[in-house]
Nucleic acid binder design. Structure first.
Lengths: 233, 233
DNA sequence: TAGATTGTTAATCGATTAACAATC
DNA sequence: TAGATTGTTAATCGATTAACAATC
């Protein structure tokens, strides 16, 4: 009786879109309009929203404010989530300064690092602290969300430290596939892997168009035509 | 007859994992081992790999090198993809300096921006150039992949410029839901939205544990219990 | 009332899992 | 040969789409 995961992934999209519309002063909106603008199937939007809100009214659609409120409540915003970031390198600093997060109820309170050159500095008013202060502060401030942006070789042990410190949800930006102990929510955000998907999609587009011209034939990889027919007994 | 999208999203994970194993000197590996380490269903890994490689051998599993080669070929690596990045702010700079990409065959050749303070500087040896040079360079160098990391209000027009410049695949890091014209591959990477999913999963964990103690009750949002039972005629 | 739009139940579709035969 | 592991076909499961009744 758990809700479909796929839906949960679409909801933030609706929310981002609705906030833009709200700024434009629009006060109510129909699922068909959302679907059109977001380039999605109307029935899909209708079902998703029916699931998390009952503010919809025939003929007029959803009141903007109520829909946004329901969406945020369902997604667990409102009680803004405080997070600690570990690994204040370039990516870490970029995330600490990412204004967008505030709109979604995420607030990075501080960054942690072991580099003395970074410790003591601030990003957007948020301090970078020595890593050894993480356990104490996380417990004292009841911070449950952690963002992991350390170098690969430190990923595993840093993750362990975060879990020991009472952090219950980790957003992992390293390429290391960590596995979460029971009770800990882990989300891997492998940017390089995401790019791979894009790359694959672009290649597929060329294939469809028959622009296959020069095949991406590697150096040695054999033709490798799977089940190329032949005859079988 | 298109392959399942879900599979494509798992493949980069295997690749990342296998490369780590390869560095450790492991020369062959079984699907059950991969599944165990990655905490996935064994049958699922078996089917995914069967789809893209025929190097598997009963009893011994897959030779490491062949499997990695097949994986990379399928994902369209090898012919490394050159990309331009537009919007060299904090996030843009972090991506330009993200070493991980190289391992996956992505190379960001240059960044573009309109800020005179940024133009002329370098990140990891990659120049930041004035935006007006994008169209000419993209065409001349045949760059087909673009990364969009501009502020929200510039997203739409910058996207249009990239498409006009001949870019065929755009990795969109802005929260603006762009829609792609035919022939252009668009991948939205809304970091704030990704966080939302994590946040939701953490909340769900608390629910399961019955630690609901203090409900995440916002300021005003009404109870809004959908189909709370009642009786129906 | 008439019409548009929601909410829900049923049908389709696709992906995951299971079972098993093939084979090194 | 015996045993482990692959590759493939069939069964299950879940999500998406379609159809339609409810209702403002």
């Amino acid at each position: 009786m758990e809700k479909p995961l796929a839906t949960t992934q679409r909801l933030p999209k609706y929310l981002a879109y609705l906030k833009i519309r709200q700024k434009q002063g629009i006060e109510s909106i129909s699922t068909s309009r959302i679907a059109e603008d977001l380039n999605m199937a109307a029935i899909s939007v209708r079902k998703d929203l029916a699931r998390i809100s009952n503010a919809g009214r025939p003929k007029t659609g959803y009141p903007m404010d109520a829909l946004i409120a329901d969406l945020e409540r369902f997604l667990g915003y409102g009680n803004a989530r405080d997070a600690f970031l570990v690994g204040a390198g370039r990516l870490g600093q970029a995330l600490m300064g990412y204004a967008q997060f505030a709109e979604y109820g995420l607030s990075i309170l501080a960054g942690f690092d072991i580099d003395p050159a970074l410790i003591g500095s601030e990003i957007d008013g948020k301090p970078i602290l020595p890593l050894e202060k993480l356990p104490g502060l996380a417990r004292r401030m009841q911070v449950k969300v952690g963002i992991l942006t350390v170098p690969e070789d430190a990923a595993q042990e840093t993750f362990a430290l975060m879990v020991e410190s009472g952090i219950r949800a980790v957003w992992n930006f390293t390429a290391i596939p960590l596995s979460a102990p029971p009770g800990v929510v882990l989300q891997n955000e492998n940017l390089a892997a995401s790019f791979a998907v894009l790359s694959k999609r672009l290649a597929a587009t060329f294939d469809e168009e028959g622009v296959s011209g020069e095949v991406p034939c590697g150096t040695f990889a054999p033709p490798n035509e799977k089940r190329e027919g032949g005859h079988q007994s």
